[in-house]
Design a binder for these strands. Structure first.
Lengths: 117, 117
DNA sequence: GGATAATGATACGGGTCCGTAACGATCTGG
DNA sequence: CCAGATCGTTACGGACCCGTATCATTATCC
């Protein structure tokens, strides 16, 4: 059973959630950073720099820098892979899980408000 | 009739759309820029710097700079208000309307894909 | 008309991010 | 064991954005 949503509703939803994110002084994440954050929290581990770069279609330094920022915000951490010490494994944090959960609530709540318009 | 969506679906939707935005090399807009763009295209004109600053809860230079960027991308333009020449009216553009429409399609399409999960 | 208020833009010092190119560390295979 | 491949990070010059304070322009009101 598909999720029914019309273009006009989609835009209202997108706008309202972004307004909330901005007004709550949640860090002003870019589209790239958001994509990385959600990929780490929704897809099965392990997550590596190279893997994320491939999934997003960007270069590795872009991922490294985004991880610097997201790490500074406490939304995730890095750990050396002991099996193959060339790799770095990106791990979730409590703060990151809370932020993602909060985003989910924001979206669902605004979706309910919008309703049939 | 409210728009039914569960938190897990909301997150999947949010991630998929952001992944598409990143992969298509659509300009990597921040949450603030997105909020401004959608406000201009969804709310009734006229839009001013001061009005947008109030709605987003940010200072005026933030709006000015965002308009610089969005203007450079061709997504909207500024025009002096002839009635009160202190004001600047933010106007929509064809390219901006297309980008917004494309975002709407992206959201609706991914919503359909996600369905009952 | 002249003081006051309001609007949007700009200056500033500091931080972040960009893409390209190079780098050190680590693994792999002959 | 050592050349080559692979991983993530860093260096670099340039562009953008931040928040605060200030600016020029325009309108208002006595």
């Amino acid at each position: 059973m598909p999720l029914e949503i019309r273009p006009s509703q989609a835009l209202k939803l997108w706008r309202q959630v972004h307004l909330d994110l901005v007004r709550d002084h949640d860090a002003d994440l870019s589209a790239r950073q958001t994509a990385i954050l959600l990929t780490v929290y929704l897809e099965l581990p392990p997550h590596t720099v190279r893997g994320l770069a491939q999934q997003l279609g960007v270069t590795k330094p872009v991922i490294t820098r985004a991880l610097d920022t997201l790490g500074k915000l406490g939304l995730l951490t890095r750990k050396r892979d002991e099996a193959d010490r060339r790799n770095v494994v990106i791990q979730r944090t409590v703060a990151g899980a809370l932020a993602v959960e909060r985003l989910a609530d924001l979206v669902t709540e605004h979706a309910r408000e919008i309703g049939g318009s």
